[in-house]
Structure formats: C-alpha cells, structure tokens
Amino acid sequence: MATSTIRKALITGTGDLSNVQIVTATIAPPPPNHVQVKVLYSGFSGADINMRLGIYPNQKKAPLTPGYCFVGRVHVNGSDCKKFTPGDLVVCLSVYDAEAELANMPEKYLVPVPAGLDIQQAVALTLDWNTAYGMVYRTAKVTKGQRVFIHGLSGAVGYALMKLCQLEGAEVYGTASQSNHAALRNEGAIPFVYSNKDWIMAMNAIGGAHAAFDALGFESWDESFSILAPEGGHLVGFGGNLPMLTGGKHRSVIPAVTKLLARNMVPFCPNKTSFYYIGRDQSTFEPELKKLFEMSREGKIHVPIRKIWELEEVPEAHRTWNSAGGIGSVLVRVAEDDGKA
C-alpha cells in the first residue's frame, strides 16, 4: 500500500501562535498491529494549547500534530489486525495526531461506537466526560446530599463533573466566567467568579465542600483545600492550567502535585487529596467509556457542544481559546461522515 496525502494541523515549534499551521503531508500505511482511521472529529482542549506552549507534561518535541481524541471510520487494517473492518465507527484516546485526515493508531486503543450514538457526543465522551466520570465515581465517590465545588463549570470537563455530580444528588457550586452564570444557574449550579475569591468565604459559611475538583493547580489547590468541609472533604486536582489561563510563564506542575499529595500525611487531618489523570492503558478506561455511551443512549446525559472548528481553522481556535465564551466541549471537524471507509 502506498503512502497517502493528507491535510493536518502541525505545531512546528512551541510558544508563538504562528507555530500552528495547517499543512499538506503524507502518511505511511499502518504498521503491524495498527489501524489507519479516517478522522471525522477531533476533540480540542486545553491539552492542545499547552502542547503549543510547550508546557504539557512529558509531551514529545515539536513538530507534532495535536488532537487528544477522535472519532472516525476504520480505513485500512495493518497486519495482524482483525478486530475491525473498514467502515467501522471507532473512537480513540490518541494523545496526538487526531487533527489529521488519517491517523495510524494501535488497534488496542480503538473502541467501537455503538449504533445510534451521535458521533459528536461520542468524541466528547471519550476524553472530557470519561475524565470526569473517573473523578466523580472512583476518586471522590460523590453521593447524594454532598456539596461539590468545581472550578471551570462551563468548561468541557467542568460541565461533565457538574452533571454527573447532580445525577448522584449532589449540590454543585463552582467558578466560571460571569457571562456563563445565568446558563449555569439554569442548570442547577451556583456559580462564582474565580478572581474575586468571594467563593472561599461563601463555601466556608455553608460548611464547606465535601468534594472539590480543581484543574487550575498551584495556588488554586491551596485555596480549594481551604474550603473543604471540616468534618472531612476530598480535593481532587487534575491538570495544572493556571499559567495557561493567566498568561504566566511555564511552571512545572510536579512540585505543586507533590505538595497536594503531601497533605495526606498531616496527622489527624480529616481531609484527603488526590491527583487524577486519565490514560488509555488504564483498565478502567474502556469500561467507563462504554458506561458513558450507555448513559448517553439512555438520555441520562447530553454533551453541550460549545464550538465546532473546521480543520483549516485550528490556528484561529488557538488564538481565541482564552476569550471564547459558551459552555461545553470544543471539537474540530476534520471530515464529513459519508459512512465509508
């Protein structure tokens, strides 16, 4: 099989927005145990921005094609691949290479999309909601009647955390841009503005949070720990996005994570801390994703899609990331689905 010509996003170097380009390139046939997939939609998230800035933990060096997850149709099987047939609809936690017309991925990381599931919903569930699911059900173990605080309620993962916690009967509070407060109140949450810190006094006044989810990291983890319920609460840190959002210089998240987890060593402290990350090699990844697929098909959950960019618009998506409004997940449409391989 010959190489194929494709269009793809490329981060040519780290830092400046000019390093994000849409290029014509070639892709080789899939190697053994890999499947070549025709990408339909890619997720677009803070991971893309951090990779462009060069601050995503352990990222590979530029040039690289971003795109942490995708939904697409199997195009060609590599040798020894028999799980899927051309045309099958699959999702993948790809980490890289999703913002491209074709992608070669290990067969073991492809998950079939059940019939009848909307493909935009499927790709958003793969990363955004699957991340939230693990934090709500396995890490914090949120239960009915608890008070939960979430930073970034209007974001992709933050919104998913909110809805999953509400499904369990929790009261949800959190931070979000002022422009999204009315919509979040309509969803049953109580939002605050992060920067004025009124949320710290307000949460302590009502007895604190039984669970707090914080993707900002650094000093924000200290603040979130301070609002935990005195009888015992659980702070779940994930990400480390504060420098990205504030325009600050790169700061390693490792010392902050170490400090976060060290709080568990304080004698007689009723509060717990965890740092959460999602990985495609985790034994929980595929079962929890399939559970989310089931919940979506049953109508228990629905992903709001904040924005869909075309592949050629990816540089603009990077430029406007911090100023974009709305609620929910962001996607990149790579190709229309014609139902063919």
Rank of each mutant, 00 (worst) to 15 (best):
A160V: 08
S252I: 11
I200Y: 07
V142N: 04
I11F: 05
P191W: 00
T14W: 09
M203K: 03
V90T: 04
G72F: 01
N271I: 11
L117E: 04
D214W: 00
K38F: 04
D222R: 14
G237Q: 04
T246W: 00
S323I: 13
M265A: 15
C165S: 11
A100N: 04
E223V: 10
G174N: 03
S274H: 14
G15Q: 07
I6F: 04
T14I: 05
A341C: 07
L10P: 07
P30S: 09
M162S: 05
F218P: 04
A2I: 13
E171S: 08
G233R: 05
E171C: 06
E294C: 09
Y173T: 03
D338G: 12
L127S: 06
G152Q: 05
N204F: 09
A170D: 02
F225P: 04
K60F: 08
S220W: 03
F149V: 05
K300R: 15
W129T: 08
P114T: 11
Q121P: 00
C81H: 01
M265L: 13
Y133F: 08
V95S: 12
T12D: 14
N204R: 15
S329R: 00
D16R: 13
W199K: 02
D198E: 15
F225V: 09
G155D: 03
V172T: 06
K108D: 14
L40V: 01
A156G: 10
G67F: 04
V95W: 09
E99P: 02
E286S: 04
Y194D: 03
N130P: 04
R263K: 13
L17E: 14
F218T: 05
M201S: 15
H210Q: 15
L260W: 03
I22A: 02
G78L: 12
E223H: 13
